[in-house]
């Protein structure tokens, strides 16, 4: 078998090495959830006579791993999709080169977490608890106002969360509890939650579609850790036009985690000038206005107009948790390990 494969690989190498050279190509590495309108990307391609290729590289963690592993000979010019929980790791690994985009002056400084301009903010979203409006209305149950409320007996067995070890909204919610209750304190809260029958799902898909009662999966539980934008998505992707969103978010102070996603020019990019142009483009109003309906997060540019469904159905939390990326990087592993030792482990 060896010769066959060697021949095939050589053929591959030849095929990939000598494609036609014009127009110039720009490669953008992203996570799997990246999306954009064809029209918007085509506009950039025409303006700069360039062909943009996207490399979807797995979920956010996998994609970042791939970028770090190949930093000596990068596969792409631009990397998009590192969020504030992974930011420090990306910066420490030195995969980005600084680029102070002129458009940064238009972006609020609260989103600019890297003072050296290696990673530039593109969008943000909040991880919040979604609830089934009809369930609470029908039972006449008041909504939980604080995190502490979730441990009260009337909310027993109602909440579904994701495992922070395998899910990014799960990690975000863990960080919310760390921010609120402090370092060893958050574990006490989780013990109380466990006693109150919290369900732990491995990922967002299962939590939302299998367990959550207001999703089309029709699960048994009326509260789930999801995104602040999920109610808008429920309206936009409804089977039949809906008058109102079937879900809403709990947005009390300190109950949501703000995720910010960043883009950067990769060190050793073959096409640095174009890469910088593309970063500018991602920060421009044109691209920013495309973000909400494609990826269901908010644009960081304050002048980007939001679609109606977003204005109507997405609640913006008053005081979302914003944690220092360096603190997250330093402790995330320990926090997650301590969490998993709260007693979810039955087998030993």
């Amino acid at each position: 078998m060896r010769p066959v494969i060697v021949v095939l690989l050589i053929a591959l190498a030849v095929l990939t090495a000598c494609g036609p050279r014009q127009p110039a190509t720009l490669t953008v590495m992203t996570h799997d959830s990246f999306a954009a309108s064809e029209e918007v990307i085509r506009a950039f391609e025409q303006e700069h006579n360039v062909k943009v290729t996207f490399l979807a590289s797995g979920d956010a963690g996998t994609a970042l791993n791939k970028a770090i592993l190949t930093k000596d000979a990068p596969l792409a010019d631009v990397f998009y999709g590192v969020d504030n929980t992974f930011l420090s790791r990306a910066l420490e690994a030195g995969i980005f080169e600084p680029y102070r985009s002129p458009l940064l002056t238009e972006i609020p400084t609260e989103f600019q977490l890297d003072p050296e301009f290696r990673a530039l903010p593109v969008d943000y979203g909040d991880v919040c608890i979604n609830y089934d409006k009809a369930y609470f209305a029908e039972k006449g149950l008041p909504l939980p106002q604080t995190l502490e409320d979730l441990t009260r007996p009337e909310y027993k067995g109602l909440l579904v969360v994701e495992n922070p070890a395998t899910s990014s909204p799960g990690l975000a919610f863990l960080l919310v509890t760390v921010a609120h209750f402090g370092d060893p304190g958050y574990l006490e809260f989780w013990k109380a939650l466990k006693k109150n029958g919290v369900i732990v799902a491995p990922d967002w898909e299962t939590a939302y579609y299998t367990h959550f009662s207001a999703s089309s999966g029709r699960g048994p539980h009326p509260m789930v850790v999801s995104y602040g934008s999920s109610p808008a998505a429920e309206v936009i992707f409804a089977e039949k036009p809906l008058e109102d969103a079937p879900t809403a978010s709990l947005v009390g102070p300190g109950m949501c985690f703000r995720q910010i996603e960043f883009v950067g020019v990769l060190k050793g990019a073959r096409n640095r000038a174009l890469a910088q142009k593309f970063v500018d483009f991602m920060l421009s109003v044109r691209f920013q206005e495309d973000i909400p309906l494609q990826m269901f997060v908010f644009p960081v540019h304050p002048q980007a107009r939001l679609p109606e469904a977003f204005v109507k159905y997405v609640q913006v939390p008053e005081q979302p948790v914003l944690m220092d990326p360096a603190r997250i990087a330093a402790h995330r592993e320990r926090w997650i390990r301590a969490w998993s030792e709260v007693g979810w482990i039955i087998m030993d």
Binding site: D32, E205, S216, A233, E234, A238
Partner: peptide, 14 residues
């Protein structure tokens, strides 16, 4: 399939 499942909404699920 995974693209559809990664966003909420009845239409995506269907």
């Amino acid at each position: 399939i995974y693209r559809f499942l990664s966003q909420p909404g009845g239409l995506n699920y269907g």
